[in-house]
Amino acid sequence: MNQFKTLALLSVLSALLISISYYTIGGTGGVFFGILIAAMTNLGSWFYSDKIALAAHGAQPVSREAAPELHAMVEKLAEKADIPVPGVYLLPTQSANAFATGRDPEHAAVAVTQGIMQMLPADELEGVIAHELSHIMNRDTLTQAVAATIAGAIAFLAQILQYSMWFGGMGGSRDDNGPNPIALIATLFLAPMAATVIQLGISRTREFAADAGAAQLTGNPRALASALKRLEASARQMPMTGNPAYEPLMIMHAVPKQMFSGLFSTHPSTDQRVERLLELEKEPVGA
């Protein structure tokens, strides 16, 4: 069900991109331009999403000698998940967080902050690493990158459309083939908002799936539940700075927002996630 929901949301996101391209450029040419932009952003996400995400946070590869326990943990869980061992990276910040990136299990990386390494006990850190490996197994890292780039392209085209309206680029008389002014204005203001809502909806859906995958990998859903509570409390005291476009990749909100509407949240609430994890603890082994 989660996979179907994600596919449906990505389809709507792509349709939004093509629609706003139509209103920006007009006619069949606009539709083809939208399709071209969608293809280019998806291709860029495919090849460069891991490098961009790691560079955006200043992540550096960490050697086995520098972090033997972390490497051993990643290797053990990757073997359980039956995926290649991803690259291991460290983020030079005391904020406690982690993320995974890469287009597929063969080109993946897991990044953790110095803060999370120092804060979490071993069983809770294992739950966090298992959560990130679940994202890799499910190819959520690519899905999130594609969603982010399409949403960014929609925002960019909406900005072009806005400039065109300001400078009279679309102020001429409207013929039967021209864009409907009401539809044009609705597209201008609503498409970027809708794209953001859809992108974040995809993120929330994939977080629940990764939590469940982590519980299955470790056999200890309570450890991840405890880690999530610690991470949320830590984020309130020491929020993580960085490009907000990459917040959906993180295991926890960079800055928890108590007043945030669920529609505009990158993650489900921690209480919801903990509740689901503790429900999994009640299920029979192998269920």
Results as ranks from 00 to 15, higher is better:
162 Q>Y: 10
199 Q>G: 10
163 Y>S: 13
204 R>A: 11
149 T>A: 03
129 I>Y: 06
156 F>C: 06
156 F>Q: 11
147 A>S: 13
148 A>P: 15
188 L>W: 03
137 M>W: 12
142 L>H: 04
171 G>S: 12
143 T>F: 01
155 A>M: 09
180 N>S: 09
164 S>W: 00
139 R>H: 06
207 E>M: 07
164 S>G: 13
177 N>W: 11
158 A>S: 13
130 A>F: 07
136 I>Q: 04
201 G>N: 10
190 L>F: 09
188 L>Q: 03
138 N>D: 13
192 P>K: 03
167 F>C: 10
166 W>H: 05
160 I>N: 04
129 I>A: 07
155 A>N: 14
139 R>K: 12
203 S>W: 05
207 E>H: 11
150 I>Y: 05
166 W>C: 11
150 I>D: 07
172 G>I: 05
141 T>N: 02
199 Q>Y: 05
194 A>L: 13
141 T>V: 05
183 A>K: 15
204 R>I: 00
199 Q>T: 06
174 R>V: 04
135 H>E: 02
172 G>Q: 10
172 G>K: 08
185 I>Y: 14
156 F>I: 15
148 A>H: 13
181 P>K: 01
153 A>T: 10
202 I>P: 07
166 W>I: 15
150 I>Q: 09
153 A>H: 13
152 G>Y: 02
183 A>L: 14
166 W>F: 12
152 G>Q: 11
130 A>P: 00
170 M>T: 08
163 Y>A: 12
192 P>A: 02
180 N>A: 01
186 A>M: 14
155 A>T: 08
135 H>W: 09
178 G>D: 14
196 T>P: 06
166 W>Q: 04
132 E>N: 05
161 L>K: 00
165 M>K: 01
202 I>C: 05
139 R>M: 00
131 H>M: 08
182 I>L: 15
186 A>E: 10
140 D>T: 03
163 Y>I: 09
170 M>G: 07
194 A>D: 09
139 R>F: 00
129 I>P: 06
135 H>T: 04
198 I>N: 07
165 M>P: 12
186 A>G: 10
207 E>L: 06
193 M>G: 12
133 L>A: 01
169 G>I: 01
180 N>H: 12
159 Q>W: 10
197 V>C: 03
181 P>F: 01
146 V>M: 12
205 T>E: 08
195 A>Q: 08
165 M>S: 07
194 A>T: 06
182 I>S: 10
156 F>L: 08
140 D>N: 10
198 I>M: 08
189 F>N: 15
145 A>K: 01
142 L>E: 00
170 M>D: 08
192 P>L: 01
181 P>C: 01
197 V>L: 05
178 G>A: 15
179 P>G: 15
198 I>L: 13
193 M>C: 11
152 G>T: 14
128 V>W: 11
145 A>H: 04
179 P>R: 05
176 D>I: 15
